[in-house]
């Protein structure tokens, strides 16, 4: 009897293990072959010689990494970081009040307002970026409007510069900031505002001392969600930027499809991944320590 129970339990565990394996294997295998392995190949390519017609020669070298020390590439790297940072701050400054506004409305209003924020998020990125060409170009909406009001004699150069790229980035990633901010602000207990008020704090003090610290999580999450894709962005500078507003993504594309220097393109991609992973790892580290502290 005891033996039978034991075998029964054993088969049950085995079956459970089998179920787990069946559930996990397809996704894991797919991601291993078509995500992890390709990334390792990029790592491999980064230490190989450049091939004559694209591709690589199978010869070990570190020269591709040395090329990174060329100041030309620092400029691009610096610009990517700077534009992504600027975009993040701008999104925060616009997104926080908007998220706060939505979260402090009556419930029946909230969903409608949130939907208004989400709809652009669901529309094609390219299309949204393209819209800014119509607005910013020399024959575009702004220039036509200003010149018909006789405010300008010559059309302003609004397109193909960092201004246009920044506007495009903020426009593209604003919803990424608003959604996590709203998620934290929605859980914020607005009765705390009355409490602070009763204790004599004015709105500014209440905001700085109560609201801001309690919604820091949303701020950090939103900032990461904007900064990370913005750093690796390639379409926005490609469409709205010019030769002087190249970002890292453009450089990578150029190395793979234009200059045909795959190893150096691989080096640049690795740099990009590292830049993205650093803030993420810090975020998890801090979150982990907070969890332990509690």
């Amino acid at each position: 009897m005891f033996n039978r129970i034991q075998t029964h339990l054993a088969t049950a565990t085995n079956r459970r293990r089998l179920n787990l394996a069946v559930l996990v294997i397809p996704a894991t295998v797919w991601l291993f072959f078509f995500f992890v392995l390709p990334l390792f190949m990029v790592l491999l390519y980064s230490v190989l010689e450049r091939g004559t017609y694209g591709g690589v020669e199978w010869q070990f070298t570190l020269s591709n990494y040395e090329r990174l020390f060329n100041p030309i590439y620092w400029g691009v790297l610096g610009r990517s970081l700077w534009l992504a940072l600027f975009t993040t701050v701008a999104c925060l400054l616009v997104g926080y009040p908007l998220a706060f506004f939505i979260a402090s409305r009556p419930p029946q209003w909230r969903n409608t307002l949130l939907l208004l924020v989400i709809i652009p998020f669901w529309t094609n990125f390219l299309v949204r970026i393209y819209a800014w060409i119509i607005i910013l170009r020399q024959e575009g909406v702004i220039n036509v409007l200003l010149s018909s009001l006789h405010l300008i004699n010559q059309p302003l150069d609004l397109l193909f510069n960092s201004f246009a790229v920044t506007v495009g980035l903020v426009y593209g990633y604003l919803p990424f900031m608003i959604l996590p901010l709203y998620a934290t602000l929605e859980r914020f207990d607005f009765a705390l505002l009355d409490a602070a008020q009763d204790l004599g704090a004015n709105d500014l003090k209440t905001f700085v001392r109560i609201v801001l610290p309690l919604t820091l999580r949303g701020i950090v999450a939103g900032s990461l969600l904007v900064f990370i894709p913005a750093v690796g962005e390639f379409i926005t500078p490609d469409i709205l930027g010019g030769a002087k507003t190249l970002m890292m993504g453009n450089l990578v594309q150029n190395q793979f499809l234009g200059a045909r220097h795959w190893p150096f393109g691989s080096v640049l991609s690795i740099v990009m991944i590292v830049i993205v992973l650093i803030p993420i790892l810090i975020y998890f580290r801090v979150a982990d320590e907070k969890l332990k502290a509690n």
């Binding site: 991601l31 078509f34 990334l39 190949m41 750093v231 690796g232 993504g249 990578v252 991944i273 992973l277």
Partner: peptide, 26 residues
Amino acid sequence: LEALLFLPIIIPDITMGISLLVFFSL
């Protein structure tokens, strides 16, 4: 496994694109 699932979301699109290009060409 969670990390494996999380990575494709955070890694820039373009690195994923070129890594697949490298992979397929090899």
